[in-house]
Computed example of a mutant assay.
Amino acid sequence: MQVSKDTALMVIDVQNGMFLEDYPIHEEEQLLNRIQLLLAKARESHNPVIYVQHNEEEGAPLETHTPGWEIHTAIAPAAQDLIIQKHVPDSFRETNLQDELDARGIKKLVLSGLQTDLCVDATCRRAVELGYDVIVVKDAHSTCGQGSRSAEQIIEEYNRSFAERVKLLEASEVEFI
């Protein structure tokens, strides 16, 4: 599916601290490879790329201005990319994200990143509420297992839920124009 210039790619919380042993991200290498593919496609077509970077308190894995807080080097931002700082799962709440999207004429969002059941879901829900046309890249978001549920089960459950509200595409199917 082709998406136009009023479309931005969002990469949510793909930070070093999310790839520690404490966070066994499901298929982390494949996730990074798929986000790299999306980044290459968006940049080649000159579509905006927006990174969202979560900030946590002192001692937490995503403590602000620590190595864990840094965006993963495999998908590092380019000079022209926008980085939004957030403190809660919803990337719009108490951030300048909506103002930045409005200023750039962005009407459609392609979502990728971490974690499926937290920040990706919260951002997706809010974007829909705000009237954005949303595509969730079903193989470019991930999480870790929780309790008796595996990461794969959680991802499948959320992909079914996303499909009820937004477009759901694989990374290979997303084409920026």
Score class of each variant (00 low, 15 high):
Ala163Met: 10
Phe176Arg: 13
Ala127Ile: 04
Glu63His: 07
Ile50Arg: 00
Val49Cys: 05
Val52His: 06
Phe19Leu: 12
Ile84Val: 02
Ala163Thr: 05
Thr64Ala: 09
Ile154Lys: 06
Glu156Pro: 03
Gly145Met: 11
Arg43Phe: 07
Ile154His: 13
Glu157Pro: 05
Ala122Gly: 07
Ile75Trp: 04
Leu118Ser: 11
Gly59Trp: 04
Trp69Pro: 12
Arg165Ala: 15
Glu58Phe: 10
Glu175Phe: 08
Ser150Ile: 13
Glu170Lys: 09
Lys5Asp: 10
Leu62Pro: 05
Gln98His: 12
Ile106Glu: 04
Ser45Arg: 13
Glu94Trp: 10
Ile177His: 13
Phe92Trp: 09
Lys167Gln: 15
Arg43Pro: 10
Ser91Met: 01
Ala74Phe: 13
Gly147Glu: 11
Ala127Gln: 07
Pro67Cys: 12
His87Cys: 13
Ala151Phe: 12
Gln85Pro: 02
Glu100Cys: 02
Ile12Cys: 00
Ile83Ala: 02
Tyr132Cys: 02
His65Gln: 11
Gln36Asp: 10
Asn96Thr: 14
Glu173Thr: 03
Lys86His: 07
Lys86Pro: 03
Pro77Thr: 03
Ser112Gly: 03
Pro77Gly: 06
Thr7Asn: 00
His46Cys: 14
Ala103Tyr: 02
Leu109Arg: 01
Val11Cys: 02
Leu168Asn: 01
Thr7Val: 03
Leu31Ile: 04
Arg125Thr: 11
Leu101Val: 00
His26Arg: 07
Glu170Gly: 10
Ser142Cys: 08
Val166Asp: 00
Cys124His: 14
Val128Leu: 12
Gln30Gly: 09
Ala42Lys: 01
His46Arg: 13
Thr66His: 14
Ser148Ala: 14
Gln98Leu: 06
Pro77Val: 03
Ile35Val: 06
Ile25Leu: 08
Lys107Gly: 05
Met18Arg: 08
Thr123Ile: 03
Lys5Asn: 10
Ile35Thr: 00
Gln15Glu: 06
Phe92Asp: 07
Lys86Ala: 04
Gln2Ile: 12
Tyr158Arg: 08
Ala103His: 05
Leu82Arg: 04
Leu118Lys: 11
Leu97Trp: 04
Arg43Glu: 06
Gly147Leu: 07
Ile155Arg: 14
Ala140Pro: 09
Thr143Val: 08
His65Pro: 02
Thr64Gln: 06
Glu56Leu: 03
Asp102Ile: 03
Asp139Met: 03
Glu44Pro: 04
Gln15Arg: 06
Ser112Lys: 01
Leu9His: 04
Gln53Pro: 05
Ile75Cys: 09
Ala60Thr: 14
Ser150Ala: 08
Leu114Val: 01
Ser4Phe: 12
Glu27Ala: 14
Glu100Val: 11
Ile75Glu: 08
Leu20Arg: 12
Asn159Phe: 12
Glu173Phe: 00
Glu63Pro: 06
Ser112Trp: 01
Val120Lys: 01
Phe92Thr: 01
Asp117His: 13
Phe92Val: 08
Thr116His: 03
Tyr158Gln: 15
Asn55Asp: 13
